[in-house]
């Protein structure tokens, strides 16, 4: 690992100017991905800018009318322990408890998980299913981006030079709304999703009125399969409707074969996990 400088700005403005002046710098939240990548040579940098001393990035704010705002550097352990979050976004608390082990969860953040842009990121399909918005700060000001548009290639996100992620916003769940993330790992924990599926459904008067489905580890980026969710709208939550959505999700998957699993197996799992995740969400 090459030596690098370290800066820890205290305010958004200070961070913005540091990032703007050092476009090659690496931005650090929890560091659970970045430090490993620096150590094993996958990334190199002369400067690491630590954003976790900035209040906006460390805050969880819940507004019962609008929704939940999670600072980009809030560690998962804090999400798991947050009462409002557990009550209104139980699936999010669950996924925060799924990433890494206890020690990792003391550092790892949803923001980092999103910015790292791994196709296998556990929280991203769920955030897509929850219709989350990413708030980005940069030299041109603030912009909001749907989470499903945030990752553009393996390890690459849409942040322009000088930009960084400030927080992620989750709209308040409507009545009859349920979400679920399911992943498959050969080991029970401490493993990377071979396939992950995040789903959300809203049922009103016995009919599905909203549904979103997103997949992990089956494409270069976390994959929002709009047509799979749309196929459920207007239908009763029957096994047939679920099976149809699952087969659309499976058809959308474009997995590769690697050391974690062969492509055909991943495709097979997309169908199984989508069906199981939808069944679980609709049974709640």
């Amino acid at each position: 690992m090459k030596s690098f400088d370290y800066a820890a700005p205290r305010t958004l403005d200070e961070a913005l100017s540091l990032v703007a002046q050092n476009p090659q710098a690496q931005v650090l939240a929890g560091g659970t991905d970045l430090l490993v990548q620096l150590k094993n040579g996958r990334r190199e940098t002369d400067l690491v800018i630590d954003l976790k001393r900035i209040a906006e990035l460390k805050t969880i704010a819940f507004d019962p009318k609008k929704g939940l705002t999670v600072g980009a550097a809030v560690p998962c352990a804090q999400l798991c322990a947050h009462a409002d979050l557990r009550q209104h976004y139980p699936s999010l608390a669950e996924v925060a408890g799924l990433i890494g082990g206890t020690a990792i969860q003391g550092r790892a953040s949803l923001g980092g998980n999103l910015c790292n842009a791994a196709p296998s990121a556990d929280s991203v399909p769920l955030m897509i299913a929850l219709a989350a918005q990413a708030r980005v700060a940069g030299p041109q000001g603030i912009r909001d981006v749907p989470v499903e548009d945030f990752c553009v290639a393996p390890g690459k996100n849409l942040l322009a030079p000088g930009e960084f992620l400030v927080n992620i916003f989750f709209p308040i769940p409507a009545a009859g709304f349920h979400a679920q993330y399911l992943r498959f790992t050969p080991r029970n924990e401490m493993d990377i999703a071979v396939v992950g599926v995040g789903v959300s459904t809203r049922v009103e008067n016995g009919k599905i009125t909203a549904a979103r489905i997103a997949l992990a580890s089956v494409a270069p980026t976390p994959l929002f399969v709009k047509e799979a969710g749309d196929s459920l709208i207007g239908q009763a939550p029957t096994p047939e409707a679920i099976a149809q959505a699952a087969s659309l999700a499976q058809a959308a998957a474009k997995p590769i074969s690697d050391m974690r699993a062969p492509a055909d197996y991943r495709r097979h799992l997309c169908g199984v996990l989508t069906r199981r995740a939808l069944t679980a969400a609709l049974a709640q």
């Binding site: 050969p186 029970n188 401490m190 493993d191 990377i192 974690r260």
Partner: peptide
């Protein structure tokens, strides 16, 4: 159940870490 040297055709070990060389943990 899971442990193996996953080799590329060129003889590279593709899973040379305890993350991807899947030894069982206490939870398995």
């Amino acid at each position: 159940l899971n442990e193996e040297y996953f080799m590329s055709a060129e003889g590279r070990m593709m899973n040379a870490s305890f993350l991807d060389y899947r030894m069982p943990t206490a939870l398995d």
